[in-house]
Design a protein around this nucleic acid. Structure first.
Lengths: 149, 149
DNA sequence: CTCCGTGCAAAAGGTTTGCACTGGT
DNA sequence: ACCAGTGCAAACCTTTTGCACGGAG
């Protein structure tokens, strides 16, 4: 479910606006990382993004990719995805959506479902927790892994 | 929401039974790791468990803790928790439940709510995904982090 | 005797940090 | 000139692996 050209343009415009507001420069490196992330729908790791970005900016370092991702997350332009694996994965989609996670190969697929977007959350304030948003993780087996057995 | 003594006993009995069935020895090390995990409700990392277990078994190695956790997960006696951080966290509770995740400090709290346990999942079979179970992640700020600002 | 789990140490990821440099303001 | 962002390399943290040892069947 990768983004259309128009969507990508609007996400870039949003990035420019947010950076402007927060007084944070949208450097070439940050823009390249964001674009690489927007171009993908498979929730890549930082390293996978580095591999892409290094084609455009051959001198970029892994550290900068990590720092750019931190910045994008801080700015609300990307999100860290919860994943039961060793490497952190990133998601360019900030609006509410859900995930299918393959128990065998670790793939993360987006799940868009209006019903899941309207679950009434229990009141967590008695526990002292201020809820901000939620998402549903569905675990199971993806197409490739079901095929294999 | 840590386990009562009775619950812990029954979980240990379950472990003995499962190991028996599967022909897998429940070694001292594995039992110690499982007990350490059952004693906690904060979804510890492998390293945090090592720090606890090493008190009882001073010669135990980190590798064994990792291998024990792998075995427990494989046996269905524990679960890896999805978490947007670098270290994998483990959960002694296998039955369906949900999580409150603090965006600031990364704490994971259990959320038990019968309503959330009965969400009608969309049909993911057209996407080739065979759903097995799900859980809801609520993100926000925990009590300590709200207090601080 | 054989097999499997373990301990140790080293290797293999993944992520962060110290420091010098640079480009924009 | 200043400051923030960057590149590089090293450090650091987490997890896995190779190998030898030892205990249970």
């Amino acid at each position: 479910v990768s983004l259309s050209t128009a969507d990508r343009e609007s996400r870039l415009a949003e990035a420019r606006r947010v950076c402007q507001e927060r007084g944070v420069p949208l450097t070439n490196q940050r823009r390249a990382v964001l674009q690489a992330l927007l171009d993908r729908d498979d929730h890549p790791t930082a390293d996978a993004l580095y591999e892409v970005v290094v084609h455009d900016l051959p001198q970029i370092s892994r550290a900068t990719v990590y720092r750019s991702l931190d910045a994008l997350v801080e700015l609300g332009l990307a999100a860290r995805v919860s994943h039961p694996g060793s490497a952190t994965r990133f998601d360019p989609t900030v609006r509410r959506h859900h995930h299918l996670i393959c128990d065998r190969c670790g793939a993360i697929l987006d799940l868009e479902d209006p019903t899941l977007d309207r679950i009434p959350l229990p009141d967590t304030r008695p526990a002292g927790f201020r809820a901000r948003d939620y998402s549903v993780q569905v675990r199971g087996l993806c197409e490739r892994c079901t095929g294999g057995g």
